[in-house]
Design a protein around this nucleic acid. Sequence first.
DNA 1: TAGATTGTTAATCGATTAACAATC
DNA 2: TAGATTGTTAATCGATTAACAATC
Lengths: 216, 216
Amino acid sequence: MMKDLKLKSTPEPTLRRLPLYLRYLKGIEQEGQYVSCTQIAKEFGFDPTQVRKDIAETGITGTARVGYPVKNLIITIEEFLGWNKQNEAFLVGVGNLGTALLKYRPFQEKYGLDIVAVFDDDKGKQGAYIGGKKVMPVDKLTDLAQRMHIPIGIVTVPPEYAQEVVDKMIDGGIKAIWNFSPVSVRVPEGIIVENARLSTSLAVLTSKLHHMLTNN
Amino acid sequence: MMKDLKLKSTPEPTLRRLPLYLRYLKGIEQEGQYVSCTQIAKEFGFDPTQVRKDIAETGITGTARVGYPVKNLIITIEEFLGWNKQNEAFLVGVGNLGTALLKYRPFQEKYGLDIVAVFDDDKGKQGAYIGGKKVMPVDKLTDLAQRMHIPIGIVTVPPEYAQEVVDKMIDGGIKAIWNFSPVSVRVPEGIIVENARLSTSLAVLTSKLHHMLTNN
DNA sequence: TAGATTGTTAATCGATTAACAATC
DNA sequence: TAGATTGTTAATCGATTAACAATC
């Protein structure tokens, strides 16, 4: 009999909730040694069972009647998210958004995202330092990514350049793309794409608002 | 017998896909008069039935064997998302991210988001113009929001100020909060909150990457 | 001990996908 | 007409929520 090799991966909703728990746990780290799912659930208005299943995904086990040790839970979640070690990234497109990401300190300090080089095809920006990083031409990206074994690429270019930038990243061996451009990008099997599209988020907001205001 | 008054609202996944379709449709607007769900689905690798149901949510009806008229579909989706008219917004927290949002032209041009005033409690910024908007102290927010009937509040302040800013927005009659801070905010029944937390998005990326690299 | 909490299995719910008649 | 596509109902799938025995 064949063992089923397909390992079910963590549901994305769980991945999205874990950072919330983590932040809450860090806030109560001093207060008590243990925390229960009930307590966490109450904080966010979630179902306690859901919190328990989310936490179970990280592999930690709790103690009945007691809960989970806070410090240990923090470490376990950080490790599960890959935030306990530095992940090197290239960022392409040093416009307003790219610059904002570059200057946002918590990425490096809390989430282990280390933006090691930035690229832009605007000749006026090349050679300048933005957020402490020298801006380089995009055609250096592939070669540098290969030599430095960079795992993450951040895409903050205008939509018309997104696909070609992604292609260069993949040629350079980049495994995960954080896409801030409003377009969908095509990638080969096995490449991770996480879209952080502001337009999508805004669509949810404005459509809900629109339907609330028009009463349907 | 009681008529069920609960009207099922559009699924959020649908709201998140519609902007993708819209962008694609605008790209092919010149090419043909009609578009089919099959065609849209192929573009994004989605199931055609899913696209059909998404489109049906907007209320438009197509023609069998033909599809939907492109121009009309564009208008219908824009209207459904509330992007065809201007939505006025206040933005609080003119740091890197707030400034980037403020300067991002397509918000106003494509999505109808009109940031009419900005606030920050940094005395060094007050009175200055950023992205063409004068920076005002946060304690003016509530009164101004009331008098101007502002529906949307954008929160780009550090996490420790998020809740109090949101409270002020709600006091000012703001109905929808676009929250960029990494914390969860509490709001009364009937207030719309859309979280655009970069840390959450990053969590999905890094955890998937982490699990790919460690082979489990 | 008593009872709150864990871990887990079962039921429910909602979204996705499949099936198919109607249609142009 | 033939067949691609719509609209809709049914089946499937996966996530959430409920139920409950085990436990400390």
